[in-house]
Design a binder for these strands. Sequence first.
DNA 1: TTGTAGGCGTTATCAC
DNA 2: GTGATAACGCCTACAA
Lengths: 343, 343
Amino acid sequence: MGTEKRGERQPTINDVARVAGVSKKTVSRVINRSPLLKDDTRSKVEQVIADLGYVPNPQARALALRRNFLLGLLHDNPNAQTVLNFQEGVLDAIRDTNFALVVRPVNRHSPDMLDDIRDFLEKQRLYGVFILPPISENEELAALCRELDCAYVRMGSTQLDSPQYLVESNDREIVASAIDHLVEMGHRRIGLIEGPEGFRSAYERREGFLDGIRRHGLEYRAQWHAPGQYTFDSGIDAADRILGEADRPTAIFVSNDEMAAAAMHVARGKGLLVPEDLSIIGFDDSPIASHIWPPLTTVRWPIREMASVAAHKLIDSVDADKLPSRLPSTLIRRSSVAPPRMK
Amino acid sequence: MGTEKRGERQPTINDVARVAGVSKKTVSRVINRSPLLKDDTRSKVEQVIADLGYVPNPQARALALRRNFLLGLLHDNPNAQTVLNFQEGVLDAIRDTNFALVVRPVNRHSPDMLDDIRDFLEKQRLYGVFILPPISENEELAALCRELDCAYVRMGSTQLDSPQYLVESNDREIVASAIDHLVEMGHRRIGLIEGPEGFRSAYERREGFLDGIRRHGLEYRAQWHAPGQYTFDSGIDAADRILGEADRPTAIFVSNDEMAAAAMHVARGKGLLVPEDLSIIGFDDSPIASHIWPPLTTVRWPIREMASVAAHKLIDSVDADKLPSRLPSTLIRRSSVAPPRMK
DNA sequence: TTGTAGGCGTTATCAC
DNA sequence: GTGATAACGCCTACAA
């Protein structure tokens, strides 16, 4: 353990070299685990390193290697829990390395977003960046990373880029199987609350929904289908529209949990019981899903695992193509789905 | 705008100096806004900087200055939204500076937490760190930062440290005023679900509760008072206990929103209407608060503003003592509080 | 007001 | 296997 006292200068590689009676290049070799070193030279140096409590200076290292060990996270906060889980997943991967994770929330509605990010990437010269949806779908942003020679991995719900730059989930398939679940419970009249136009995730989830509907030859009605913005308020409007119909569906798939919670509010307001009168399935498995009443059946995407894989793609670029690009989501069955009431 | 192409070496200060026909020290002076420069020298150099798309290398700068421009965030994820709001607040403060924010989630239940953090701080040599509650209450952690000569600011719900190392909220006062609010609505029988033993926030909120109770000369009963762990599940147990009594309170103050949501679940299970039969006030103003039914009256603490202030304390250490150390929380009135039903 | 020399702590090159 | 020596890109001290 280091025994340096406060205020003392941190020991440098020169101190270690001097005390150990070797050249600093040799110390450098020890640090970097060079194979061509005599065992006793190595252990002697290691002993001195431990005695002095020497820790290599990352800035000096970064300068000499002409690259630093910082990974960046660009996101527009699709959901706080998701972003935080992602951070944890990256940390799982970089723990015990010299990498660190720097975060950069951005605003996709700002006209300056790309300039801000350019400024950030130029100033920080990151080793690589993660890009979360929805901004991962922005092609100009990906082009910017390439222009600035900054490695990147895009997280997404569909194939946005070539596999080495991508980690995706299988939104479309899992939503189709959520529909299967509803059909197994006896539902034939199923509605959809969608995410915003222009989001790939929204598109994929809708296609999954339609796959499910077609697969079972279900009736499809335009009035059971409403657009949303992935926000609670937009969920209220959408559910109002769908549940206002006399001839309403017995179940709804909602493209995220926040809007699903909104749909429950609306159902309650109209005197409908969930799940007896209306079954609801959400998407994300955010904390609300388990905290509302009844607890929400929803889709969990393995964001933490996806983050770890993404980190490895950035770091171990040698075998990045051996890493998977697609990780499976799962349907979490809770209490917001039940067989429809007999009429 | 920079016009450098991919694969080209980034221009350095030497390139700028050569093209501009000045020494690199002069370029350095331009970058660092030294006042003693002739205006036309300055503008000439600035022109070349713009033409070349030169951006100073932060690693080289960090090496020369013997300190980097990285701020760290140590947290044990008390609440995803809180952590993310904090990150946004820090970003508000460091936008347009050269600082970046690196995150480090830790596990306060791990026996290795302090070693992990030591390792992290030694390796990264941060400019300073933010410490979020509950680990901000850990004195060993603060001591570690001092030992490693790492500036820090602790976020808290009470005075944990001297003002320059601290940004706090006024939990105790605001909870007392939440009790005032309940009393104004006509409540006289008020219960409490507490946070975990050993958390300062839990302690402060309880004291605030008791202040309120005493101030109005209300009856206090041990069976209206239950411990919790700030988790949904613990909230279920606590509410079960309190609401199981025949002689239950007409209102409960719950120390965080997650447990408040749980209390609503329990009330519903017992056939109690919120707010008619039971008023509930939470704490945090997390997203659940507005997404459950009925929307929860709760306390919002100004985490984003607190983060900005904390960042300035770290960065502008000159006038850190001019910055406030205590920022006021506010009571957000929604629909979970109403006058008690007449008996 | 500007330039020169030297140092920050590391790694790479190339001898020995 | 190991060690001089020279980068890496910036800043400070001091000289002019």
